[in-house]
């Protein structure tokens, strides 16, 4: 047998039309699936609404939640600011909720923006290259995973100082692990498959194989995981703030819930009702979107 020479002149040309067709079919299938799924559409609308509120907040268009709009603990009435009543300082519960929405959405975005790339890159490298790199990355995440989540979160937010960004970094530091694990497992499976061999024979380097060939096949895991991450971040923020290491300046749902026990004994129910329903809506929507995406994005189910 003579030596097989791999040159840069590609002997086989991809049928680009066919690929576009497959992609179209995928996209079409995605849209046809979600068209009939009223729950999914409704949930996406809810999430878009929260993101819209957060955008208003980033542009400083939200009303100031620290301004006094009435006396202490006014029950809900039909004016815009007092629709959910006021808190102990006479601040509008509704404005606080909106500010909390901005915090929650910011947190969701920042946590996924840090954790997903780290998880994706480390997971692909560990799975694809194996050997020393794999041992090191597995060691790294098993160390972090052995420390209980909440302890790690508390430790990091103490080290970085309290505040929104510290909480985000702390959450991202533990959330990348589950994604990294899954991506690593998928890469170990995919790197032996025939399409990867074909791509290599066509002269693709590791970078191209990882990011252009394997990653598109496993990226749905990252999409589904990020909806879970946002959801967990919002839930964890409540716990952290209650334990005294969360966001301290009051503009968060966790801070509002932490104030509830004292209010309930005085028959102040509106703050609790408002924040619970506001949180419930977005978490429920994220749950539904995550579940639906998991069902329809998996390419293995595409036939």
């Amino acid at each position: 047998m003579g030596e097989v020479k791999v040159t840069n002149t590609i002997p086989f040309q991809y049928d680009t039309k066919k690929i576009v067709k497959i992609k179209n079919r995928f996209v079409r299938r995605f849209f046809s699936q979600i068209q009939n799924n009223k729950q999914f559409l409704f949930s996406s609308l809810i999430i878009l609404f929260y993101v819209f509120v957060a955008c208003l907040g980033w542009m400083n268009l939200l009303p100031d939640f620290q301004a006094r709009v009435g006396v202490s603990y006014e029950s809900p009435s039909l004016s815009f600011a007092k629709i959910f009543g006021t808190d102990i300082f006479g601040r509008s519960v509704f404005f606080k909720l909106l500010a909390g929405t901005q915090t929650a959405v910011t947190m969701g975005f920042v946590v996924t923006a840090i954790a997903v790339p780290i998880g994706l890159v480390l997971g692909s490298i560990a799975g694809y290259y194996g050997k020393t790199l794999d041992i090191f990355i597995t060691w790294l995440y098993s160390v972090i995973a052995s420390v209980p989540d909440i302890l790690l979160l508390i430790a990091i937010s103490y080290s970085l100082g309290k505040g929104l960004m510290a909480v985000c970094v702390a959450m991202a530091a533990s959330y990348w692990i589950s994604l990294c694990r899954m991506i690593r497992g998928e890469f170990i499976k995919h790197k032996e498959s025939e399409y990867v061999l074909a791509a290599k024979l066509l002269g693709a380097n590791d970078f191209v194989v990882i990011f252009k060939h394997i990653l598109p096949n496993v990226i749905h895991i990252a999409i589904v995981t990020s909806s879970l991450m946002i959801l967990n971040a919002i839930k964890a923020e409540v716990m952290l703030t209650y334990l005294g290491v969360g966001i301290q300046d009051g503009a968060s749902w966790g801070a509002m819930i932490s104030a509830v026990p004292g209010e309930l004994t005085n028959e102040i129910w509106w703050s609790l009702a408002a924040v619970v329903s506001f949180m419930f809506l977005v978490i429920y929507a994220l749950n539904v979107v995550g579940d639906t995406l998991r069902d329809i994005l998996d390419p293995k189910l595409l036939n």
């Binding site: 839930k235 209650y242 609790l272 619970v276 949180m279 749950n287 579940d291």
Partner: peptide
Amino acid sequence: VVSMSISYLVYIIV
């Protein structure tokens, strides 16, 4: 799914 969408702390408080 509804029960999972409510914060743990809220269950405790209420």
